[in-house]
Structure formats: structure tokens, C-alpha cells
Design a protein around this nucleic acid. Structure first.
Lengths: 154, 154
DNA sequence: TGGCAATAATTAACATGTTAAGGATTCGTA
DNA sequence: TACGAATCCTTAACATGTTAATTATTGCCA
């Protein structure tokens, strides 16, 4: 035990771990992902793979960089995930003919079907959290979180 | 591209991935951890190892279960992290004599020194985020995040 | 007291996060 | 037009996240 435990806000000292922002973010993410992982458990895909499919479904075929950006994944992760999804037949990957360094990823019919088959259930999960916090708080939470993202225009 | 893109709130449809709570949580965590990882880069320990040391420093010796709880780590992760920290001489581990299944973890002097040597810098990082959002918003953010944690008494 | 359920922790196996290094291709420009 | 810098992506290596199986110990109770 040291001398820096549970201070008031803004004192320039470290907060108690119980009021730590990183830990709070982890716990919240854990709570939010729980029902989503549960929903995905019978599909055999992970939350990250689901995220990639969702982005592709929303925006259409994307180059790897844009896809990584919108799905919030690092390149090395995306490389592996794209390979996995290809093996599962949920996406296809084609090389850009104009710039042979670039790749385009596109969702397949099977991939789109997986999204369609679960979008209602996913929407209910979102609505449940919205109800938990109240619509107004939910929107403000999204805004506050966005302000912590350095890549955000805000 | 499907038909379920960018709906108003509470319509029962999936939101655009740009307003997705899981993605917002990931991005925010990314933004918050960036300066912390930066601070830790010269110590050779990870953010999770830092979290474990912080909890031990705050609460004193803890059994593995309580430690996992307070540091928001799963058991398998904690097992590995505890071994790593032991090898680095930052914690010690002792078996409970009353119940030989249980282990207690305790921070060492070297571990405490690592915390002390960085607590000012860590506190400045926290204060910067507090200033970014404003103290009031910062506290509300912590409260909203806590309400998404199922293990929370709220 | 013998045996089975419950608990604490570890191990295993696989996916992802993270940083650094390496390949392939393109671009800019001297 | 040759060549070095920049870009896109992959691979490598290690740490963590996640789920399931396993081990060791304790507790319960017939």
C-alpha cells in the first residue's frame, strides 16, 4: 500500500484503480461484447470478424487500409482475419489492377447472409443498452468516447 | 451495401458502424492507452502488467481471484502475467497455508519503485484527458461506463 | 471415511493486439 | 531512366484475450 490512494479529482495524483479510465473502458467493453459474443457463438466467427463483415456490408468493397480504419483493426490483425474469412467463404479478395500493391476486400453472399440472419438480434442488443442508459445518455456517451479518439476530426 | 445503413436512434435497426458502441469503446481505449504505452515503453512492461502493479500497490497483497477482478483480467492472462512479473522481480507469489489451492501475490520494492517513478507522469496523462473533456464530462463518462459493466453493483 | 461435487489455479489451443522487420510495387526526381 | 523514398501489405515474434480441458485441493455428506 502506498500513499497515493483514492484522491479527489484533478489533484495531479493517480486516481484509485476503481476510478481509472482505462479500466472503466475495458470493463464497459467487456459488458457490451458479452451478449454480442453470445450471439456469435453459434456462427463460429469472432467479434472482430463480425466487425469486418459489418463494415463491408455497410460500405461495399474496400481497400485494406480503409477497411482497417473503419473496423478499427491494425494491419497485421486484418491480414489474418481476411485470410480466415476467405477460408470460410465470407469474403473475397482481389488485387487492384491499377496499383498492384493494393487489395480490395468484398463480402460474399454467404457473408451478407450471416449479417442478415443476425442483424435483428444485434439491433435488439443495441436497443437494450440504449434503454439501460437512456437514449440521451447513450448518445452523449458516444460523443464523449469519440472525443477520446485522436483520429477523430473533433 | 445493404439496406440497413445509418438509421435514427432507437428504430430497432443496426446503427452505422460509425456510431457503433463497441467500436467507439475500442477507439477510445486506443486513444487513452497511447500515451500510457508511450510512458511504459522504456520500462519493458506492458499496460496489463502496469495495471497489476497499480492494483497491488493500492490494495496490498491479494489473492489471485481478487487481483484478477480488480485488474480486470481473466485467470489465464493473470497466470502468465504473474509469471512474467515474478521473473522480472516485480512481484512475489506465495501459497496460502490455510488453503493450499490459493495463491497470494505481493508487489516487491522494485515493483513499487517502478510505480513511484512513473506515477507523476501517469497522473499528468490522466489530467490531460480530464482537461480534454472537462472535469464534469470526465466524471459522467466514468459513471456511464460503470453502468455498462454487468459486474457493477449499479 | 470414501467418494463426489465445488473451488483455485494452470495448461492448452487458437485468435487478436502490438511492434518491428521484410517484400513488392509505385512515385518522385535528379 | 535509374534509384532512393514512400506506400501497401505481409510476416515474425511475443503478449494478451478467450474458451475449454485439466490438475490439485478442499468441502460435503451419505
Amino acid at each position: 500500500m502506498n500513499s497515493k490512494t483514492s484522491q479527489a479529482a484533478g489533484t495531479g495524483a493517480l486516481p484509485s484503480t476503481a476510478r481509472s479510465l482505462p479500466i472503466a473502458l475495458i470493463r464497459a467493453r467487456e459488458g457490451v461484447m458479452l451478449p454480442i459474443r453470445d450471439m456469435l457463438s453459434d456462427t463460429g466467427i469472432t467479434e472482430q470478424q463480425w466487425r469486418v463483415l459489418r463494415v463491408l456490408s455497410e460500405f461495399g468493397p474496400l481497400d485494406t487500409k480503409t477497411l482497417a480504419d473503419r473496423a478499427s483493426l491494425l494491419f497485421p490483425s486484418l491480414t489474418r482475419i481476411a485470410n480466415t474469412l476467405k477460408e470460410k467463404g465470407l469474403v473475397t479478395q482481389t488485387r487492384d489492377k491499377a496499383d498492384r500493391r493494393r487489395q480490395f476486400v468484398e463480402i460474399t453472399l454467404a457473408g451478407q447472409k450471416l449479417i442478415d440472419d443476425h442483424s435483428d438480434q444485434a439491433a435488439r442488443i443495441v436497443d437494450r443498452f440504449k434503454a439501460t442508459l437512456g437514449a440521451e445518455n447513450y448518445e452523449q456517451l458516444l460523443d464523449l468516447l469519440a472525443r477520446l479518439d485522436p483520429d477523430n476530426p473533433g
